[in-house]
Design a protein around this nucleic acid. Structure first.
Lengths: 217, 217
DNA sequence: TGTTGTGAATCTCTTCACAGCT
DNA sequence: AGCTGTGAAGAGATTCACAACA
């Protein structure tokens, strides 16, 4: 029972959402092969991931959904939630704001930043917007630990530096550049261009790269 | 010299963009350790990836940037480009349209679809929009092979089915559900919720999962 | 019988180590 | 000396195979 790997953490996040949906449909229990089918992975993979929680199921009835959701939350979520800042209030930034508005109260986007004056000092989807020069002050004052970076490539590194100076230790990076960060800061890249080129490549080849299609990456 | 893996394909796409930028800055040659530094990976990784092209460098001067860009393009790109369809013209869809407008002529978004009548039969960032019922007709007629899915979770599977019926063999999926697709269709998930939860987890732990921070995933 | 939990085997990817080149 | 190209080793992730259980 070692620490869950990055891949496992990602899948646990996915399992939780699938379980919440399954629960809303009225189900109380699931088998590993059912959850696996929803997630597009193997049943063994699901059980292996759940070992790291750890969550116990019964060979007769599978896993209790509410127990599983609680157990996953106990490992994924902090004890008192985490606050998030968004940098870049363009189309993508607004899409992210709209998506997370009131969706995850324990991962709330509490401040957004932009360079353009007509996008600052406003409230968009419940989120106050500021000028990028205020990142250090506001992020530190609000106790924000996570940053969402939705700015053009040229502005990405300086925004990153500001976030890290203010105490952020994790960044979701939508911009198509590799960020330079100190070793204690975790970066997850969501690179649309890379994704599109990869998909175009395998779409053209008409084959999937050595794994069953439809599975999560 | 086997087929490049999915990870390698993603990195080659990244290298190409970094090389194009380096070239615009006036450079003619790079060493593997320079490209590695820009990409956030090791020099050995870069050379290993370039082996699959294959691209040859000289121990004296490194790699010729224009040769490298051509060689990568020769493997990543199809001979006559590929056409892309977008489903979902909300905030996210418009962000994607704006980003790719005239950026990659060989991967052009030539049609967009939405359910809402006020978003259809228009031209947004040079892209014609249609009703989702027209997906089969338009995608087949335009010879589109790649789909970008930016719709709410509830609409994702039916949009996927339409795209696949019309001949699409690769999908970039922004929606937080696992798509059911036949084995010949490649899906790449860009799941913002999963990314945010993963980042929040490692931000809280203050450690990076068994690799140097700042590298690409 | 059908499922969970898990050691062992397998597979994939990354890094090491170094020969060969200029 | 410093780099490229690459076989081999190492690390990590997934799958196999099966004991234990209800």
């Amino acid at each position: 029972m070692t620490h869950p790997s990055e891949k496992t953490i990602g899948r646990l996040s996915l399992y939780r959402r699938l379980l919440e949906r399954t629960q809303r449909e009225g189900r109380r229990r699931v088998f590993s092969h059912e959850l696996a089918s929803l997630a597009g992975v193997t049943a063994t993979q699901v059980r292996r991931d759940l070992m790291s929680i750890p969550a116990a199921g019964s060979p007769k009835h599978g896993y209790e959904i509410d127990v599983l959701i609680t157990a996953i939350g106990h490992h994924l979520d902090g004890p008192q939630g985490q606050r998030v800042a968004l940098v870049g209030v363009g189309n993508l930034g607004r899409a992210v704001l709209a998506y997370f508005f009131r969706r995850r109260p324990d991962l709330e986007i509490v401040a957004a930043f932009d360079v353009e004056p007509d996008k600052t000092d406003r409230v968009i989807h419940g989120c106050r917007t500021y000028a990028v020069e205020q990142i250090e002050d506001v992020v530190a004052r609000e106790g924000i630990s996570v940053g969402l970076l939705a700015v053009p490539a040229a502005a990405a590194q300086s925004a990153t530096d500001r976030l890290i100076r203010a105490g952020v230790t994790g960044i979701v990076n939508f911009s198509p550049v590799s960020l330079r960060v100190p070793p204690h800061v975790f970066v997850e890249d969501l690179d649309v261009t890379m994704a599109l080129e990869k998909v175009a490549y395998f779409a053209r080849l008409g084959r999937t790269p050595a794994r069953a299609a439809g599975g999560r990456a």
